[in-house]
Nucleic acid binder design. Structure first.
Length: 801
RNA sequence: GCGGGAGUGGCGGAACGGCAGACGCAGUGGACUCAAAAUCCACCGGUGGUGACAUCGUGAGGGUUCAAAUCCCUUCUCCCGCACCA
């Protein structure tokens, strides 16, 4: 009789063995077939691991372990994205250096991850706050700077008054700070920017070359927001000047009955002397500036504006003089900051025209009365009231008008993006110093690469300041330096990089984590890259995922990496919700601590449960009873050891081949829940049989190993199957053996099941129909119209009464 | 408003156009036990029937098909992004 299943004993035992034998270290033998599985490295917060973390980590641990069993050289690494605000805030509050806070948190996280039995290659552990690591983060910044892709400019930033830090557009959610929820205000500041917009086209186009889940691709495309249209010049009446607009509907040019400029448009200053109602316009501009982005969005539907008195434009095709308005529904940050308004065919223009009584002229026929309803459709309409465009479809008209505009020198085709450049400065201590000095003579000068890494100075206080200056600014010893260019006095940049910097290239470092001469050797990169499978949260789709693709493309252009895309495949997991279906949070009191689950049930149970909980990509609610059920399943597996009989043939051959097939494919397609269900069914079958052979047990243990690695290794050892299970070979299945010789198929009358018969799997139609008729004897009371037989599936007899 | 996703038992969830509800949880009955827990076995969508069985059933309404949770049209609800992007 076997001992009791005791995860508290066997789990630490195997974790120790895996550590001691370096069981999961990726080999630097570049002749082996490789597999690079990656999960997003965590921010080591003070709270420790959340039950959300094990879901993606276990999923890719399953993939990594399965690949090793299939003979691949697997890289499944882990590290720490450790720069960041919470650590700094904790340090300020408790007067502990952020370095120490980070060290403690990392130790805690690492202990927790080890207790879950992940097959990470801990020899390749990295930490973004390690100078040997951020050396290369700074190096990448210097390359961006040298190529003109990092630049400093005075611009309005999204300022969080609570965090006292500027935020990237991607970090502002609904007008509020992504982190603390405080409403963001706009502030002018000199900021470092990264020119991600230079890569906008490639960031969209290359999505066609990678295997990402559709929703990620769609989000990225929408965020980048590419649109194709034209820029058109409108003459300003009585001047030589032009007002340039961007439009995606140049075909509607004949219907442009007025124009609108953003309140910040420079022409307001330029033509101050001609504008008669300047006071009114400046007052409007002030009002608009006062509105936060949030308010501006809230009030979106209620259009406001002021007509400029004294400035009119000329429609280049109709020659008509049309008024120019100022309204905050036109943004200075997109296109040219001015639009031509075609109220008949644009929702917003229509609303504005209705409110202010501006003329609405139909130029695309096909909708209802444009005085009553706007007609924005581009599919079905036909051009009218448009001179030489009349009778054309929208698509044809676009081509025709653009050609005409180009010929006359009045316009050009133009493509625009919603994507803005990346605000890259943070006024904080706990981040990578930006390796730039400012010299009165030479301007912004990069440090020489030999002077990297530029370390953070030791400071007394990490407090951010009300003025928005970085705490580093107070460190005059550190700030005052000499110019690397002329040797004269110079000051260091005191802003630091955002948290997204370190995570934008970390996957490269894992391939060669201790390299001192480069971010990684080309040889290692050529072998390991791209990442074969990367899983992470949807919340990073427009942040980390986009940023890292941008950096990677830049590095590819620089010849520093061998491939244009970093990740061949990207999947995303759903959130784990509390037992009540709500997001887990301290205030809701529904937080589950993974340590408690490991203590009470064991790591294997937690892993099994999180994979069984539901469809991997969807959110799922925690259920303590469900956890118990998974523990029960593992207990049943444990007790199978007493039912094993000698034998190297499968006792339930068909069933086993079916299960191997299902588990093998389900592990590849994120269907961990049905893979586990299939193994549960198999175990239930062995209980029904009362026995199973060694061959049965071996294959079952190997298949279950990626999910529940400790119990399976232990059983492998206890049963004396030889060596370590993690060195075993993934079982093969034979397609022919997944099909029973006889099958039970349903017999239907008019599509309704009335009986079932067991026939040979390859029975011909006549045999099957005959068997079906026999099973239905007595019910076949009408006229048979048709008989259908789908081998292995169904017999259907169609009958009229 | 736009985009994405989801609506199936008491619950979490399964179902290449082919017997809806696999698997798990909860529940019911039985075995074991002095008893309970644990474990093992069986049952477990609604309605009617002792029963074989009949009948209804995948958010709602139509349609295609021998056959629809699955495909097509219409419609409702919920969740998640984005949001005056010209």
């Amino acid at each position: 009789m076997s001992e009791m299943y005791n995860p508290k004993a066997i789990e630490p035992k195997w974790q120790q063995i895996w550590d001691d034998t370096k069981a999961f270290a990726a080999k630097n033998d570049y002749s082996l077939p490789k597999y690079y599985a990656l999960v997003e490295f965590p921010y080591p917060s003070g709270q420790g691991l959340h039950v959300g973390h094990p879901r993606p980590y276990t999923a890719l641990d399953i993939v990594a372990r399965k690949r090793r069993l299939q003979g691949y050289n697997v890289l499944y690494p882990m590290g720490w994205d450790a720069f960041g605000l919470p650590t700094e805030n904790y340090a300020i509050k408790n007067h502990i250096h952020p370095k120490i806070v980070t060290k403690n948190n990392v130790a805690r996280f690492k202990g927790q991850l080890k207790s879950l039995g992940y097959s990470f290659d801990w020899d390749r552990e990295i930490n973004t706050t390690d100078p040997n690591y951020f050396h290369w983060t700074q190096w990448i910044f210097l390359q961006l700077f040298k190529k003109g892709l990092a630049y400093k400019t005075e611009m309005p930033v999204n300022w969080c008054p609570s965090c006292k830090v500027g935020l990237a557009n991607e970090e502002v959610v609904g007008g509020c700070c992504e982190r603390c929820g405080t409403e963001v205000v706009r502030r002018m500041r000199s900021q470092w920017m990264l020119k991600i917009t230079a890569y906008a086209d490639r960031l969209i186009d290359d999505l066609d070359t990678v295997d990402y889940v559709e929703r990620v691709k769609v989000s990225q495309k929408n965020w980048i927001g590419r649109s194709n249209g034209a820029e058109v010049d409108f003459a300003i009446a009585g001047t030589e000047d032009k007002l340039r607009v961007y439009t995606t509907r140049p075909d509607t040019l004949f219907g442009a009955t007025y124009m609108v400029m953003s309140p910040e448009h420079p022409y307001i200053e330029k033509y101050a002397d001609r504008i008669k109602n300047m006071d009114e316009i400046l007052a409007y501009r002030e009002e608009a500036a006062k509105k936060s982005d949030f308010e501006r969005t809230e009030l979106a539907k209620d259009k406001t504006g002021v007509a400029i008195d004294g400035l009119r434009a000329v429609n280049p095709v109709t020659g008509a003089e049309i008024p120019i308005w100022v309204s905050d529904y036109v943004l200075m940050s997109y296109g040219t900051g001015a639009i031509m308004a075609v109220p008949a065919h644009d929702e917003r223009d229509w609303e504005f025209a209705k409110k202010f009584g501006l003329p609405i002229v139909e130029v695309v026929a096909g909708g209802r009365d444009v005085q009553e309803e706007c007609f924005p459709d581009v599919e079905t309409g036909v051009l009218v009231n448009s001179g030489f465009l009349n009778g054309l479809s929208v698509e044809e008209a676009k081509k025709a008008i653009i050609a005409w505009l180009e010929e006359k020198g009045l316009g050009t085709p133009k493509r625009n993006f919603k994507l803005r450049d990346w605000v890259f400065s943070r006024q904080r201590y706990w981040g990578e110093p930006i390796p730039i000095v400012f010299c009165d003579k030479c301007g912004a000068v990069p440090l020489s690469e030999e002077d990297l890494p530029l370390l953070l100075p030791e400071v007394e206080s990490y407090m951010p300041t009300e003025t928005g200056e970085s705490p580093l600014a107070a460190m005059t010893d550190w700030v005052n330096t000499t110019c690397p260019c002329c040797g004269g006095p110079a000051k260091r940049e005191t802003d630091t990089m955002p948290q997204w910097a370190g995570s934008s290239w970390y996957f490269l470092r894992y391939t060669d984590p201790t390299n001192e001469n480069a971010l990684a050797s080309m040889e290692a990169l050529k072998y390991w890259m791209p990442v074969d499978w990367y899983n992470g949260g949807m919340e990073h789709t427009t942040l980390h995922l986009l940023y890292s693709r941008f950096w990677h493309k830049f590095l590819f252009d620089e010849g520093a990496v061998p491939c244009p895309e970093p990740y061949a495949k990207r999947t995303s997991h759903g959130m784990i919700l509390g037992e009540n279906g709500e997001k887990m949070s301290k205030s809701r009191g529904n937080v589950i601590n993974p340590d408690d689950i490991v203590n009470e049930f064991g790591a294997d149970t937690l892993r099994t449960y999180e994979m069984f909980i539901g469809a991997f990509e969807l959110a799922a609610s925690w259920s303590q009873e469900g956890v118990r059920g998974c523990r029960r399943f593992l207990e049943r597996v444990w007790k199978l050891q007493d039912m094993v009989v000698p034998g190297d043939a499968y006792s339930l051959e068909t069933k086993m081949h079916q299960t191997i097939k299902k588990v093998s494919s389900d592990f590849e397609t994120l269907k961990y829940n049905t893979a586990i269900a299939a193994m549960m069914t198999l175990v239930n079958d062995y209980y029904r049989e009362g026995k199973l052979t060694q061959a049965d047990f071996k294959s079952l243990l190997i298949m279950l190993n990626p999910v529940a690695p400790h119990i399976t290794e232990e059983l492998w050892e206890v049963c004396g199957f030889g060596g370590y299970l993690h060195n075993a070979k993934w079982p093969e299945y034979d397609e022919a053996k997944t099909i029973e010789n006889t099958v039970e198929i349903a017999v239907q009358i008019n599509g309704k099941t009335r009986a079932a018969v067991t026939i040979a799997k390859d029975a011909d139609k006549e045999t099957a129909i005959a068997a079906g008729r026999e099973a239905l004897s007595g019910r076949l009371t009408g006229t048979i119209v048709k008989e259908i037989y789908v081998p292995g599936r169904i017999v259907n007899i169609v009958m009229k009464p």
